[in-house]
Design a binder for these strands. Sequence first.
DNA 1: GTCTATAAAGCGATAGAC
DNA 2: GTCTATCGCTTTATAGAC
Lengths: 203, 203
Amino acid sequence: MKDRKRVILEAAARVIARRGVRGLRMEELAAEAHVSKALVYYHFGDRAGLLHHTLRFIGDRAQRYTRHRPPGSGEPDGSLRELERRLTQELQETPEVRENSTAWGELRAGAVFDPALREGLREASTEWLREIAELLGRVAQTAPDTALVAAAERLTVLLEGLSTRWLTGALPVAHARELMRVSVTAEVEGLRAARPRAVCPVG
Amino acid sequence: MKDRKRVILEAAARVIARRGVRGLRMEELAAEAHVSKALVYYHFGDRAGLLHHTLRFIGDRAQRYTRHRPPGSGEPDGSLRELERRLTQELQETPEVRENSTAWGELRAGAVFDPALREGLREASTEWLREIAELLGRVAQTAPDTALVAAAERLTVLLEGLSTRWLTGALPVAHARELMRVSVTAEVEGLRAARPRAVCPVG
DNA sequence: GTCTATAAAGCGATAGAC
DNA sequence: GTCTATCGCTTTATAGAC
């Protein structure tokens, strides 16, 4: 069997989804990947190295479903639907998405106590925020930049909260998505209403 | 020195804020409390017992600033200000609040992997949700119950997300509070606008 | 590259003196 | 009630054969 390295990374993603980053044991990982512990050390040096590569692996994998609009779905560029999709994409009952969301949650939770984890987290969050703010700008048309960023912050922070609720079984995934959608709509309407020339959204 | 038990619990709260629930080591706790490890076991049985009592200790302590309106502040019962205060109270740079928020964050993060933690979390969340929904009802006056609950869910979930951002240093506490306040106002306005007899919020 | 076997360290928990 | 000393399991990490 070739490319055991990838096999190990995929196994690590599954173990992290089951036990968390802090709960990952080298022995359980080796068993999950059907290799020996020593091989894991051979490829990744130590536990920290394995975690580093796994988190990167998960992040790269996530871009597949995060950045690409489904081809042929007729979803217009910069539409409200695209914005909604981007913000509900992490709330799906799929092994890959669950593994990804779990890992991100662990990263966030770990960063509370480990400053070393914060930089990587900050980079990803900033990039994510920028993308959502830009999309909001297109959907809402005109709006001051600070308002756009603030709205994007509220939406991305809400997403993180919803993700935790989903993963702890406190909220069914469909319910979490619904709450997200309502907030997206409300934020967009809020931005539109805040235009210089205020227009009554009801009339 | 009397009441070493309380000294240990206070030390445990500090250690949890520094290392997390999962990162708490009996040895470090003993050192922090200036007692021996054996004494901790004498008073609390085992690690799980210590954690159980500590979490309860922290929860009880939190009620002091959570449920009581500051006396003589002239804050009317059921006002928008009371609602805002309740939702921004967990976002304060105080040792006590930080310890409390950290512990709750750890509990949430741990519940992703440990179903045993979920029940206690669910109870507290449900109670918290109920209180916020009720306050929202008073502030917004009439509104359908489902809309009230949904709004309360969005606000409480947002609070959890903001708490994590604050504790990871991703968001200054003042900024987090501001985002929360804006959302509270928007939700209240949304509820008012959704009344049977729709009224233009701009006019 | 991959394995088995083992060393080394960390940590929860207990024994027993005072 | 409180301490010092220590046990024993778990887990990371390495040695060395193939």
